[in-house]
Design a protein around this nucleic acid. Structure first.
Lengths: 148, 148
DNA sequence: TTAACTGATCTACTATTATAGTGCAGTAAA
DNA sequence: TTTACTGCACTATAATAGTAGATCAGTTAA
């Protein structure tokens, strides 16, 4: 039986973003691992396949995978592919750390804009359901933002 | 009487961030204008002064100010300085647009991480007060993130 | 007027980001 | 074994981001 557990990443890339492409993709994969959408041992797309799919250069993918390997999220089996590697403990911890970080960033910006806790509560109520219904994961990009 | 309404930007820059320095600074200033912490007609720091303070090159500041000018947030009086320019209508609108955008980004990430509305509510309650007490504006950086 | 500031313009240089292409060795399945 | 895939290691090129430093003209306040 063929090894058909190739993982598809459904994300958009914003080439106009101030955030480099490789960083957008890297975050997307990391997020997928932390959320356990990508599971232990699961095979990532091959360098060439992902490069083709995302319309970016294979070298860029190598860079991403290599960095993720250094950070301990994946490992490589030369000739076979890249595979997800997760330490349950680390995962749990990292997941919460990221949650805290994103929350802090969000609150800082929102306060700077002059919105209150109640304002935030209201908009969250509205958006949360909407996003949750569209169960598919959303775009990770445009933490950057076009310069146009 | 000397024109002493120089505006100080109290932000940190993360040179290791994936987000370019000029983009971090630009966002910080834009946010300050949208929040009306920087008011109509107020003088920005001079190119050299801000460059010195942030420990970055004056050319980078010129780039930032020029872009903000194109986007209609400031205007320049050669020899005198850069000044805040805000259209009340535009400001109000932009402020809310940014609020929505930040909220959507935040929710998307949080859902991907597998946290629920209740989780978000809880952490927001905790952090919101803490941040609000430290009334001074927070760091804008590390939307990027070190590659170390 | 003078002195010290201001924005504006310019050139030269470096590092990062990303593309493009070649080739080689290991792996998996027919 | 053969074929087609895989990671991996190169080199070369280009655009962007950022540093460094000089010069010039307009503005402001003494």
């Amino acid at each position: 039986m063929k090894q058909e557990e190739r993982t598809f990443f459904e994300f958009k890339i914003d080439v106009k973003s101030a955030l480099p492409v490789y960083e957008q993709v890297k975050r997307a994969i990391k997020l997928a691992i932390l959320s356990q959408r990508l599971k232990e041992g699961e095979k990532l797309m091959s360098l060439r396949e992902l490069a083709l799919k995302l319309q970016i250069n294979p070298n860029t993918i190598i860079k991403i995978y290599t960095q993720l390997e250094v950070e301990g999220y994946v490992y490589s089996r030369p000739g076979a592919g890249y595979f997800v590697k997760v330490d349950k403990e680390k995962l749990k911890k990292e997941r919460f750390v990221l949650f805290e970080k994103e929350t802090q960033d969000y609150i800082a910006k929102v306060i700077e804009l002059g919105y209150s806790f109640d304002d935030v509560l209201e908009i969250l109520k509205r958006y949360f359901n909407r996003e949750n219904d569209a169960a598919n994961f959303k775009n990770i990009e445009d933490t950057g933002g076009s310069n146009a």
